[in-house]
Amino acid sequence: MGILADTWTWLTTGANWSGESGAGHRLAEHLYVSGTALLLACALALPLGLWLGHLGRGGTVAVNVSNAGRAVPVFAVLALFMVSPLRNAGYVPTVVALVLFAIPPLLTHAYVGVREVDRAVVEAARGMGMSGGQLFRGVELPLARPMLMTGLRSAAVQVVATATVAAMVGQGGLGRIITAGFHTYDTPQVVAGAVLVALLALLVEALLVAADRLLGRRAARPKG
């Protein structure tokens, strides 16, 4: 397999990692846009989803938003941003697109997580005289945690994957290594870029699974 050997050579050549279009800078760009977008999406979607779940309203909205997110191509949204004046705003087109696509899984999982808390438990908490706020903080939020973490995981993986597509419209990120390789007919570089992107996506998934387990164990341990 000549390709595999050439790919390994590309990845282990220091010159390919340095400079504006080097793998190091592209990785930093990728992490920057993904991190910013995920934080913004969490700040927007989690409070709304949890609040709707607490009220028990807007279920159809949460589900429809999630379905619409699946039907809209990321590439099309990025392209629309890039032919609008937004193209002059640095990383903004990518970050906005990533936020838009991270909101559906976060919103749906937050809503469903709170809604699916056993009604008997909620009734019991109310019977004990808990206020809405106490019920939310002490009962609904801890019980919704596994679902929230699932939503966070799928949103994070989606964001990292989508940040790659940004390269197709000329925005920064690891995808640029792939597209640059395409333009110069450099197959080892294309494969090297793809390997880096796939590894990053798998790493993010693995890290979040590990964090989820760690948090779950701490939550399960009785206090005191």
């Binding site: 792939i178 395409f182 197959t187 494969v191 793809a194 390997v195 796939a198 996506a201 998934e205």
Partner: peptide, 12 residues
């Protein structure tokens, strides 16, 4: 989990 751009490139 593998991003689409990477998937298509790896099959190239």
């Amino acid at each position: 989990t593998i991003p689409s751009l990477a998937m298509f490139s790896l099959l190239l």
